[in-house]
Design a protein around this nucleic acid. Sequence first.
DNA 1: CGGATTTGACCCGCGC
DNA 2: GCGCGGGTCAAATCCG
Length: 209
Amino acid sequence: MTPVTPNFSASSSSTEAAGDEDWGPCKVDQPKQEVQEEEKHAPRGGEGSDKAKKANKPRKKGERQRGPRFAFMTKSEVDHLEDGYRWRKYGQKAVKNSPYPRSYYRCTAQKCNVKKRVERSCQDPTTVITTYEGQHTHHSPASLRGGGAHMLSPSPTTNLRRSVLLQQGYTNPNTYHAGLPPLLPQIHVPDHGLLQDIVPSFTHGNQRR
DNA sequence: CGGATTTGACCCGCGC
DNA sequence: GCGCGGGTCAAATCCG
C-alpha cells in the first residue's frame, strides 16, 4: 500500500524532551498535558433527564486524556492510513494555521475507546500527522482475517515498536514505554532501510488543550 | 437495510 | 468576562 515514512514520537511523562523538534511554523502551541488515566462518568449536566441539547459529553476539567498518546508523521498522499483496525470518523474540524482539516476517528470496536486524529502538515502537504490516543483492547481485525499476518499478537507489535524506536534513537526503552503507540501502521522497512528517514518528533501530541 | 461519513451545533477550557 | 479554538455529538445523508 502506501509507502510511508513514519516519524515517530512517543508521548509519555511530562519530562519529555519537547522542544528539540517542531512541526514547523504552523504548530504554534506547546503541548502541555501528560498522559492521564481516564475515568468517564456522569455527564456534566448531572440530572440526566431528557437532555434537550445534543452535545452531552462527560467531561472533566483537567482530564481529557485517555491512555497513552502517540503521534507520528507519515509521508502519504492519503489521509487515512490502513493500520489494520477499523475506524469510524466522527468529526472533522478546520485547523487553525492550516488549510487542511483535521479528522477525528474512533475505533469501531465497542469497549475500545481508542481515538485517532489525522491532519496534514501545512508546510508539507505530503505529510500526514496521525495522533493515536489510548490503547486497543482487542486485536486488529486485519490480523484475524489473515490480512495482517504479523499483527497476530501484541508481542510482535511491541517488538516492532521497540525496534523502530530504537533505530530512531530511543536507545533507552524506558523513554518510550509509557507512550507506546496503541498500534503501528504497517511499517515498510525495505532493505535499504527506510527507517533512516525516521526522526523523532512531536511529543505530547496535543497543542492547546 | 445497515453501516459509515458528513456536517452543523454545542460545550468546554484557556488566553487575553 | 468574553472570545477563540479544539473536541465531540448526533441527525442527515451517502454508499455498498
